[in-house]
Design a protein around this nucleic acid. Structure first.
Lengths: 128, 128
DNA sequence: CTTGACCTTCCCATGATGGGAAGGCTTACC
DNA sequence: GGTAAGCCTTCCCATCATGGGAAGGTCAAG
């Protein structure tokens, strides 16, 4: 499989596949005689794994750790769980921060007429 | 006031103050004879405004729009409210996305023993 | 054999921030 | 008056993950 087909099959863009290779996240694939990257099933599985980990909000560095654990058939599930729990906590922290911003803003907006008059509690609140 | 004092007074780092100036978010201040930036109250108010807008999750570009509205004494509050409501929706969308990730991972993690055995539903779920 | 759709590498941009170097001021103290 | 510490200046580079695009090589279908 060429890189374009792999991109279509995994949802990871060709650009990103090359980038992941360049930073060592995935191993360099075989090359055709013309120098084209040629991927086999195993690499495609890895890329799908990467994409799913990214979809779950893991950084590329964390994804690398997960990938290593995934390939290590003798890992302890505790190591994986620890990584996951830490990540869950971070996700929830970020979500809470965003919601706090939204709540503050909603509060300000609820006092704003939203008509053509100039006075505006939102700007007053920010510029206080 | 020199840039360092302004940084302490507004919570915006000196680096960022210079950067905001360079991108035109804030106006270039006066300079002392030696070339030091010298800030007056008005600029400090602007920087505080910027910081609060950033704390509410507005991008620098949105912050620029807000700043313009803030300074325009004849703006319509509807314009401000529209910007704010759009931003609230984005914040909530992002928060929901993060929470969905956390929920998925929590689900996977809840089935993971987290001991020294290797089998791990978290990795299985990601690598499925 | 040409054309179009691939592929290659290389460089640049994003957004917001920080780090640090090299050099010039200012201030407080001896 | 000199010196050292702590400011300030500009300039360049790094981060994180991604995309854009140029210049050039390759492959397959017509």
């Amino acid at each position: 499989m060429n890189i374009g087909e792999v991109a279509a099959a995994t949802g990871v863009s060709a650009k990103m596949i090359r980038y992941y290779e360049s930073i060592g996240l995935i191993a360099p694939p075989l090359r055709s005689e013309a120098g084209y990257r040629v991927y086999r099933d195993e690499e495609i599985h890895s890329l799908r794994f990467v994409r799913r980990a990214r979809d779950l909000g893991f950084s590329l560095e964390e994804t690398g750790s997960l990938l290593a654990l995934w390939r290590d058939r003798s890992r302890a599930s505790a190591d994986v769980k620890a990584l996951a729990l830490k990540h869950i906590a971070e996700l929830e922290e970020k979500a809470a921060a965003l919601q706090a911003m939204a709540a503050t803003l909603r509060h300000l907006a609820s006092h704003c007429h939203g008509d053509d008059r100039p006075d505006c509690p939102i700007l007053d609140g920010i510029g206080r």
